[in-house]
């Protein structure tokens, strides 16, 4: 595995993307491994968007959306948390470590949090690439255990 991982960050336009922008404005540095893809809402993220990123060569994928209750589209982030949980199961089936995928809640005002979260996630992926086990990440969203069908329930 290469030393410098490629990490795709699907960031909600209304929160995490703005937070990433704010991190830059505040001169908070975050790893250059992070490739941000701006999306209108994390509710746009489907399981296959995530899987496809891995197929195309990503070492890790983070999905960053609004805090619960703050979604511009009311439920998008709630749906995304479920889909990410489902995508983790799909990844596990293939033999890819599901720790390579994580959902984070980052509000638009939390530029520093975006920077630290990105750094922590990058470190996790570097460890995994080196053959290590990912350490527990306290900033990740709690992802409920879902069945395949539950991922599409509201």
């Amino acid at each position: 595995m290469k030393n410098e991982p490629t990490i795709i960050a699907f960031c909600c336009h209304y929160c995490a993307f703005t937070a990433a922008d704010l991190a830059g404005t505040m001169r908070k540095q975050y790893p250059t491994n992070i490739r941000i893809v701006r999306i209108p809402c994390t509710g746009k993220v489907s399981e296959n968007m995530v899987l496809q990123a891995f197929v195309e060569g990503a070492d890790g994928v983070m999905v960053a959306g609004c805090e619960i209750g703050s979604c511009h589209f009311i439920q998008g982030n709630v749906r995304a948390v479920k889909r990410v949980a489902h995508a983790k199961k799909l990844l596990e089936e293939t033999g890819v470590n599901p720790d390579r995928l994580e959902f984070y809640h980052v509000a638009a005002s939390q530029g520093p949090l975006f920077a630290t979260t990105s750094a922590e996630f990058t470190e996790r992926i570097k460890q995994l690439n080196a053959g290590g086990k990912a350490s527990a990440d306290t900033t990740s969203a709690e992802t409920p255990q879902e069945t395949v069908h539950d991922s599409s329930r509201t």
Binding site: N48, V55, G95
Partner: peptide
């Protein structure tokens, strides 16, 4: 599409 991605990832692994 999901199964396609899964098969590609698994065959690589």
């Amino acid at each position: 599409d999901i199964l396609d991605s899964q098969l590609k990832l698994a065959s690589r692994e």
